[in-house]
Amino acid sequence: MPDLALLLAALAVLLTLARCFGWVFTRVRQPAVLGEITCGLVVGIALQAGPGLPGRVDTTLEALAQLGLVLFLFGVGAHLAPSMTAARITAAFVPALGATVVPVVLGALLALWLAARHAPAGVTPFVLFAAAAMAVTAFPVLARILAERRMLNDSRGRCALTAAAITDATAWTALAFVAASVHSGTQVWSLLGTLPFLLALLVLARPWSGRAMDRLSAPTAAVTMVAIACVGAAVTDSIGLHAAIGAFLIGAAIGRPASRHDPAALIAPVASLLVPLYFVLIGRKVDFGDLDTTLVAETFAIIVVAVLAKGGGAYLGARLAGQPPRPAAVFATLMNTRGVTELVFLSIGLGLGVIDSAFYTAMVVMALVTTAMTGPLLNHLERDKVTRDA
């Protein structure tokens, strides 16, 4: 069969399976991404048992998935930008501090223990990456959960979104440093590309850029957003950082000025089409052949530390900020959601060679477990509140 026919058939099968798996998981009140990752696990097992796909078809699928990732993180950055106002940051700073510092510290300690088995690029990049990965909160999944529960416009929802924006911005900054340290041999001339890139970020964040975008029709604005996201991704990829970092930063910059065109909404149709393919391919990279008694014990330790560090740190920060116990518990539960952002973060670390496939598998399991916990825990806290009010 010609490569083009195989590619189109593979796209049809993978996108359909991803949607079906995602729909099944939403029916049991779980995020669709859990179904998409499960789909990737099933597809990976099936491909390992069969002849697999030709190299050129597999490479093209990976490229389409990377485009989905770029547009997805552009949207995340655009969603994040409105939450980074001075008033919201001030109100959410102490809760965010607890949800960031405690996971980073405990994650670094855990990484020092794991580094002997899982640090292919050296101890320092591995520890920095693992510490940052422990602090991640899934901003898009969190926003979806808050919208479904009609919490976006109340004080709890705003605090959680802003705190997630602060912690994720910190984690992505740390990831940029890790990527730079791994690619220390990058040509000096390519690093000069950061200067016009940073200048472009400042220009896009100015109010007049929003007014200029208002003059465009919706289709033209959508094409412009996609082009800007791809340029930002190409710049950071060319200087040795990951393409996703550039897309995220461009999205955060262009989401700041007010405009009648919502950047995230404009590219949502394309991103929602391609990003499930990315998560299917993430699931395919999970290799349960690495599982042994030691890795199972390490996975369990990672889950325990992740929940205690993120949930405990967020709860402590919320209590120090003056929140009552139950709202603080709700905040901690929301901040413990890792979801898609964690999975993207991990796949970048694997691509950079900072972590090995065994640690990647353990962290993916942690991300799925902590994301699956969110809904049941929130339901329990809501039932507890109703019981006490009665």
Rank of each mutant, 00 (worst) to 15 (best):
131 A>H: 00
149 R>Y: 04
130 A>P: 00
268 A>K: 14
222 A>P: 04
49 A>T: 03
377 L>F: 14
228 I>V: 15
383 R>S: 04
197 F>Y: 11
83 S>E: 14
15 L>M: 07
188 V>G: 03
85 T>C: 08
340 V>S: 06
354 V>Y: 14
42 V>E: 07
213 M>Y: 02
126 F>M: 13
187 Q>Y: 11
36 E>M: 11
172 W>S: 04
87 A>I: 02
295 L>T: 00
216 L>Q: 07
327 P>A: 00
140 P>M: 05
76 V>H: 07
226 V>P: 04
284 R>A: 05
347 S>L: 07
329 A>F: 13
41 L>G: 04
232 G>N: 05
148 E>M: 00
128 L>E: 12
353 G>E: 13
179 A>P: 01
157 G>L: 12
166 I>C: 12
114 L>P: 03
163 A>H: 13
259 S>M: 08
57 V>G: 08
184 S>R: 14
207 P>Y: 01
53 L>N: 13
299 T>Y: 08
184 S>G: 14
299 T>Q: 12
32 A>G: 06
116 A>W: 05
134 M>C: 02
128 L>H: 12
231 V>R: 11
205 A>T: 06
44 G>K: 00
281 L>D: 07
381 L>P: 09
73 L>R: 10
192 L>S: 11
19 R>F: 00
355 I>S: 09
61 L>R: 04
315 Y>S: 11
2 P>G: 09
83 S>K: 12
95 P>L: 09
252 A>D: 08
381 L>K: 08
138 A>C: 06
31 P>I: 01
306 A>R: 02
252 A>Q: 14
326 R>W: 09
326 R>D: 12
58 D>K: 15
271 A>S: 15
240 G>F: 01
247 A>W: 05
170 T>C: 15
